[in-house]
Amino acid sequence: MQLQFLGTGAGMPSKERNVTSIALKLLDEIGSIWLFDCGEGTQHQILRTAIRPRRIDKIFITHVHGDHIFGLPGFLSSRSFLGGESPLTIYGPAHVRSFIETALQMSNTHLTYPIHFIDVQEGIVYEDAHFVVHAKKLQHVIECFGYRIEQKDLPGQLLVDKAQALGVPRGPLYKELKLGHNVTLEDGTIVKANDVLSAPKPGFTVTILGDTKYCDASIILAKEADLVVHEATFDASTTNLAASYGHATNVEAATVAKKAKAKNLIMTHISARFLKQDVEKLVNEAQTVFPNTFVADDFALFEFKNGQLVKD
């Protein structure tokens, strides 16, 4: 799993930060990429990465403010021009569908692939054999959701000695057992995967929150997550102002991570009022509450290496 930030600014683009978009790269796990929000210029940002648009098969939208959705028509069109034919599913508030359909209709844009729209409500919005995604309403000035992405437990390691003792020959049957499937030997003996695998390995949990002021819903979504992405539009000196605009401060983001007993926090959605030299102060303030705090820059790539979150 890798998390790459395509835009980390709030409200409008600046010279240093584009508006919000985050790519959750699940290439090793399921061969796809999920996009969270798609602010203006996202397709331009993608051009400066190794991301292939046709690999993006799901887009999760937190809310319909322009700095989170204005990049959708352009990205969808470019994905078509670049040979995308596989279906794309877009999850988000109900107005996302009408925005996209109107933009495509008025611009006479034809797509080479189907789009499926899922109107998000609280609860499970997606589940397959590998992942489950939960959504919960946050507290912004319009309807806004946060998403909790949970990877399901992974099969344990194959205990080769046990498999051999049960008569399993080396080869394709080993692969089936590693995947957690029972196998049948030539003599009809059934070997159960549970008998030759170590204990399942827990999957990861990533929480990606939309715009929100400090609220309990954020803490619930972030509970014991390996990684929490939280906005930090304001700093600790402007707590009341932040709340009045439905936004959070750096210290409030850190407090959410601390109360949720999360492992790591990445702050994003940084206001243009903060210049490059101010960002270090934002991080330092947050780290007094939650030490494992990072701040995202455009194109920053985060991944876990040896159990530790690393910013490449």
Rank of each mutant, 00 (worst) to 15 (best):
M1N: 11
L3E: 00
L3Y: 06
Q4A: 05
G9S: 06
G11A: 03
V19S: 04
K25N: 12
L26P: 11
E29A: 11
I30Y: 03
L35V: 09
D37A: 14
E40I: 12
Q43C: 08
Q45L: 02
Q45H: 09
R48M: 13
T49S: 15
I51P: 10
R54K: 15
R54P: 03
I56C: 04
I59P: 08
I59Q: 09
F60S: 09
I61C: 07
I61S: 08
I61D: 05
T62W: 00
H63Y: 11
D67C: 12
I69S: 10
G71R: 11
P73S: 09
G74M: 07
F75M: 07
L76Q: 05
S77E: 13
S77L: 10
F81Q: 14
G84Q: 08
E85Q: 13
S86H: 11
P87S: 14
L88Y: 01
T89F: 05
I90M: 06
A94S: 15
F99E: 07
E101H: 02
L104S: 01
Q105W: 11
S107Y: 12
S107Q: 14
S107A: 14
P114M: 00
F117H: 11
D119Q: 13
V120H: 01
Q121I: 09
G123Y: 07
V125A: 11
F131T: 02
H134V: 02
K136I: 00
K137L: 15
Q139R: 12
H140Q: 08
H140R: 07
G146L: 05
R148M: 10
K152S: 00
G156E: 06
V160H: 09
P169M: 05
R170G: 11
G171V: 03
E176F: 10
N182Q: 02
T184M: 13
G188A: 04
T189V: 03
K192D: 10
P202V: 07
V206E: 03
K213S: 13
Y214D: 13
I220G: 01
L221F: 02
L221P: 08
K223E: 15
E224I: 00
V228L: 06
S237M: 07
T238E: 14
N240K: 14
A253T: 01
A254K: 05
T255A: 10
A257H: 01
K259H: 13
L265F: 01
H269C: 00
I270Q: 00
S271L: 04
A272K: 13
R273N: 13
L275V: 06
Q277V: 09
D278G: 09
L282V: 04
A286R: 05
P291E: 10
N292V: 00
K305T: 12
L309M: 06
